[in-house]
Design a protein around this nucleic acid. Sequence first.
RNA 1: GGACUCGUUGCAUAGCUUGGAUAGUGCGAACGCUUGCGGAGCGUUAGGUCGCCGGUUCGAAUCCGGUCGGGUCCGCCA
Length: 628
Amino acid sequence: MTFQSILDEIENNLKKILDGLSIPDVKFSVEPAKPGFGDVSSNISFLLSKQLKKKPKDIAEMLSEKYSHYSNTLVLKTEAHPSGYLNFFANWEKLPQLILSESYLDEFGDVDIGKDSTIVVEHTSVNPNKALHIGHIRNIIIGDTVSRILNKANYKVKVLNYVDDSGLQVADIIVGFNHFGFNQEPPAGKKFDHYCGDDVYVKTTEKYEKDSSLEEIRKNVLKELEDADSETAKFADKITKRVLANQLETCWNLAVSYDCLNFESQIIRSGLWSKIFEKLKEMTLIEFENEGKNAGCWVIRGENKEEDKVIVRSNGTATYIAKDIPYAAWKLGLLEDPFNYKKYEKEQPNSRILWQSTLDKANSVSQDFSGDKVVTVIDSRQARLQKIITTLMGKFKSIPDAYIHLGYESVTLSSDTAKILGLDTDGKQTQMSGRKGLYVNADSVYDILKEKTKQETQKRHPEMISSEIEKIAHYVSVGTLRYEMIKQDLDKIIAFDLTKSLSLEGDTAPYIQYTHARASRILENSGLTPSIDVDFSLLKESSEIALIKIIGLFDLQIRDAANNLSPKVIARYCHDLAVAFNSFYEKVKVLELGDEKLENSRLCLVNSFKITLEKALDLLGIMAPDRM
RNA sequence: GGACUCGUUGCAUAGCUUGGAUAGUGCGAACGCUUGCGGAGCGUUAGGUCGCCGGUUCGAAUCCGGUCGGGUCCGCCA
């Protein structure tokens, strides 16, 4: 039982009181109180104020008096605050025992929102013609963190990465290799994906700008790519797979993994489109336009004042958005699966099996990667298109909100960083651009962070062997990067600054990880294995109670994060845990107290904190070293 | 022209879904804390018309309408 148990007890008792007064159902709140107002607060008096025609304060007093007649084991006393709130003070003789013993269990924090249903989370989905930049990383970390949270909330999560391996962006690097003489091997020391993005892609598009006659070559390559058996398509397949392998290395390094890779080229060749096209016509969700500017096209009618959206051009080819419709339907399991699956060539670091779709029937098996629900992580610039998809899927699937677009604001470059990259933006932040070479590669950011943390660790521990320093620096850099990507609201722009964004103090991952290291050292120095068979009533200091209370809120936070698909909730929780522990650490001594019983109780609390923090950080994909 | 989104202290942000009590945090600034389980830490102080106007309400940072400012989207491109 966690803090939730006292909330339940209070809610039940208040309901009984209302029954006794024959007051019909009122949706009052019972939630953890703000500091200084007891442990639990309810707004019940405000809600009753109107129908009872009394002041909230008077109602609170009345309820407070009545409450004492009901059996309660976890509430010590109630208080009617002059403001009208009804506040409850927990029995801190009993609650610590409940919370701390729960925290030692494997299933601590588990909540059942998903009811074991399946949910698909699609994220990453980058063209395989360049290295991942810091903007892609936001998408990837959001997606990965959300899938971890959903998993904890009892969903069966399937993580997909949709590889956009056809279309212009890929055509451009193929043009570079085949027509502009770029070597197929990168210069020594450069990763292939960096080479394709930084050199081949950027310089090829530069050439178009200087000489528009080259566009012809581009068009021809694009056409050749459509035919799977063409030499160009086979070559492109080789190149994109190689870039993809590099991109996956970057993701794996950041503790991100997947269940399946889907390829756009295969979706196009699978015939899924014609099936969904028929279905759309049948359900009259699209209409053929006989006149006007869209004459000869199939369109989706715009809602309200929005423009109609062309789905099939007058020449019979499908538009960009049309390619997303069959994929969305496939993810929801609305179409017969045309794919077979085979294992990806390389194993993921966490040994999770990675499948990839294939149209090749040989050496492959069938699998099910569809879900009852689908979460698609794409930045907010795609909100309009995603809304169309969401609306369509809503008409296909009966479950409400089966298709969810999880949007987020993009990562921009600060004006200083843009300047470093050669663009004067007049003091304003600016959007990244792969085509213009205006971006910061994720690998570079990781490298810079790692170098910095390595130096810091070395300074603190001159005696430490290099492999351990390496490991710590890795955890801290991954932690920092991941934490920075999710600690704030999804719809706030992150203006990335190469020099400023790498702080290791304050509200950062290293602060939290450091706190964990402190706890680890206490346990290590004690030389004991903490047991939960201790006297919890000895934990009376306010900083102890505060820490226990936060530990007990773990499952409430997970519920909040999962319901709102909000990774920052967990980030804040980790920070709050760390703050509470540091305050405890400062005020209360654990070891060498000369009082074995008290020492054991406190050790148990320290261990409980450590376990909880590790679990919470795990949801963020962050590891906490025991020393740093 | 239409739509979406953000606006909280010098800067960066939490709280807004579900209206109530003292608007929480970090950076930066000033001061203080190590013969203490690790100072990537802790504490104290200063700093706030919650963009602006209006409405709903006993009560609005929170809900509604308007308005201003920043960002984004609106192609038979992808």
